[in-house]
Each structure stands twice: as structure tokens, then as C-alpha cells.
Computed example of a mutant assay.
Amino acid sequence: MKLSALLGVMLVVGVTVSAAQADPATFNTYSTDPNWSTRLNAMFGKTSKPDWLKNATSSEAVSVTMDGKPYTVLLACKKHDCGNHQLAILFDNAAIYGLRLEAADGSPRETLTWFNIGGGPESIDGKTILYAAITGSLFNHPEAFAFPVKK
């Protein structure tokens, strides 16, 4: 095999391996995008963004359908205290919605803060998707979260 052909094969294999090793899309990877971070900050409005988001643990993005349109869901939680401090984000290119959960160890009480929930499909299906992300149901059954266009 000629050296140039061998180098070409090595280059293709190297590209394939590096693409396979790319990090999955998570809250942390989206946070490195300045445009997405601006949208996230705007979502919080006058509510302070939790400090723990800077070093959050995050899960891989999940694709869902709301009102017949594709959306992405991200989940982030406080490192070493995921059960008590979580943030779920539902977004597409035009909209961003969120749910923040705060709780205390051993307490059955949860404090839920909803962001950008209005009177559209996010007021029912969006809340369902966001809470399902917090509980883990979305990640266990992603195919169940494909909501068609409302008639």
C-alpha cells in the first residue's frame, strides 16, 4: 500500500474514532455556548440562578415532541446532592422552559419553581415533560413523550 493511501486510511479512522469519542450533549456542554447561556439566564428572569449549576452533574440530552414540534430536554443537578437540587430544561430554537426542584433530606416536601410556563402547550405537556425529567421517568421511557399537535 502506498504511503499516501495508508495515511488517508489512518486519517479516516482517526476522524471516526475522535467523532465516536465526542462528548454527548448535556447541560454542561450546552452551557459552553454563549447564545444558549444567554437564553438560560433570561429564562431565570428575576430569580437567582443556583450557584451549584457551575459544577452541576448533568445527564445526556433527550429528544421529545411537544405540540408536534421537536424539543430537547436537559437535566442538571447539584453534585453529590442530586435528589434535593435539580433543574430540568425544555427548549427548541424559539423557546426555553424550566423546572427547578429544591428539597431537604428526609422531607416529603418539594419546592418547584416553573420558568416561562404560559398558556401554550408548555402549560400542560411541557410541565409533564419537565417533571418527568426530574423524576427520571423521561429517561426511562423517552418514547412516551411524543405529544402531537393539539386540535
Rank of each mutant, 00 (worst) to 15 (best):
I124N: 01
P148G: 10
T26S: 08
A22K: 13
V149D: 08
G106T: 04
L74E: 01
Y71S: 09
L3G: 04
G83P: 00
A19G: 01
N28Y: 01
L99H: 03
T128A: 04
A146H: 14
A132C: 03
N55R: 14
M10W: 04
K69A: 13
F91Y: 06
T16S: 01
V9G: 05
L6M: 00
V13W: 01
A76C: 02
F139A: 00
A42D: 15
T111R: 15
F27Y: 14
S107V: 00
F145V: 07
R109T: 01
S18H: 11
L3P: 07
K69H: 14
G136E: 03
G68P: 13
F147G: 10
G83W: 02
K54A: 15
V17A: 09
G14N: 05
T135P: 06
H141A: 10
D105Y: 03
V64G: 06
A95D: 07
E102I: 13
H80I: 01
F44H: 14
K151H: 12
F139I: 02
L87T: 08
A42K: 15
G14P: 03
W52M: 11
A94P: 03
V9Y: 01
E60A: 13
L87I: 12
T47G: 08
P148W: 11
P142Y: 12
L90E: 02
L112N: 07
L7C: 00
S31A: 14
F139D: 06
A61N: 02
T38R: 14
L99C: 02
S31R: 13
K54Q: 15
P108Y: 00
N140H: 10
T26I: 10
G136W: 03
H80D: 09
T32M: 08
V64H: 13
W114K: 05
T16Y: 06
S107F: 04
C82Q: 00
Y71T: 11
S63V: 12
H85L: 06
I134E: 03
F147A: 09
L138W: 09
L138P: 10
V17R: 10
V15I: 13
S107H: 02
A5P: 05
V17D: 05
V62S: 07
E122K: 05
D125M: 01
I96A: 00
L112R: 14
Y97M: 00
A104W: 10
F147D: 11
P24T: 11
H85G: 00
T135N: 07
D92P: 08
L74S: 08
K49S: 15
E60K: 15
E110R: 08
L75C: 05
T111C: 05
K46W: 12
E102K: 14
G14W: 05
T38M: 14
T135Q: 03
G106E: 03
L130E: 04
A88Y: 03
T111I: 15
E110C: 04
Y97L: 00
R109P: 00
N55W: 11
K69R: 15
L74Q: 04
V73T: 09
T111M: 12
V17P: 02
